[in-house]
Design a protein around this nucleic acid. Structure first.
Lengths: 156, 156
DNA sequence: CACTATTATATTGCTCACAATTTACTTTAC
DNA sequence: GTAAAGTAAATTGTGAGCAATATAATAGTG
């Protein structure tokens, strides 16, 4: 009795803590990203594109999906909005016409500099120090890999 | 240069770890909650209602909002769906007609038992032990309160 | 070469999240 | 008591997320 009550309560706490913390962080980003006219998922996509751009790598929609754990149902409309804003171009690969390659425009590349102070501005004043942040990040990553590891093999 | 590059690197960002871990956890819940015909946010709302029910407390829409950090734009349609399914009732307070009180139906109360094994089933096989889970929960809570603490005072 | 399976993206439909606005009611000030 | 300010939900509109399905192209099999 108390066991299952506790289980439901703790469950409540951990899953809710994750859920609430995630939304609190994105809420912090919102005003900063609004200055760049970006949403949080759009910013994440651009982070991947900026990184690839520096390494002269091409990025396909499926690459973004793997990296961000998002499917085409989420990415396609998001990328269309970024394309409409002139930050990226989407074009079908001529080699394999199933593939769509995403490329930053000049404007898209330029936006990187305007975004470069976002991470710094976000944390300043929160009282969360670097070391603690990285420890939490590492713990979350570890949990993520545990969650992603199993389920795949046995799952249908 | 390298500093700002590192800061903008996706993998370095706490926010992405949080974002991905949160979605991975809700993805784990999804099949379990689907058996109860519930979504994850609906489950969170019910956790609050079950708790309040045990303490014989009444819950208003605004109480749910405070607890879950959600506004009426999210809660109203969600609660309407739960009401349509016969799990809750929504009724305007006669004392103060601006207020809507949310109450579990018998079916809503009964669902608690069917949900009681969800937390146990979720974690089994992930290799995440209780102690670690609680530490993570505490750290997330602490970060959440830091994020929520400041911003309020200066903000409009 | 036809046939099947696989892969990559797009589309549709449903459910959050949240900003901005609206509606209705209550409280406060005068 | 009436006007103004404040409060509680609901509504509207936009942008995710994701399941399920559709479309189209490639790869593999006989």
């Amino acid at each position: 009795m108390t066991n299952k009550d506790d289980a439901l309560a703790l469950d409540n706490q951990l899953c809710f803590a994750l859920y609430a913390a995630n939304r609190a962080v994105t809420a912090r980003y919102r005003p900063l990203l609004a200055e760049l006219n970006l949403t949080y998922p759009q910013y994440l996509v651009l982070l991947v594109l900026w990184e690839a751009n520096r390494e002269k790598k091409t990025v396909r929609v499926s690459d973004l999906g793997k990296r961000l754990r998002l499917d085409s149902g989420t990415l396609t409309p998001l990328l269309k909005r970024l394309a409409e804003r002139g930050l990226i171009t989407r074009q079908r690969d001529t080699e394999d016409e199933r593939v769509v390659t995403v490329t930053l425009t000049g404007e898209g590349v330029a936006l990187r500099q305007r975004a470069s102070d976002v991470p710094g501005r976000l944390l300043c004043g929160t009282g969360i120090d670097q070391k603690r942040m990285m420890a939490l990040r590492d713990e979350l990553r570890s949990v993520l890999s545990l969650l992603e590891a199993q389920g795949e093999p046995s799952g249908q």
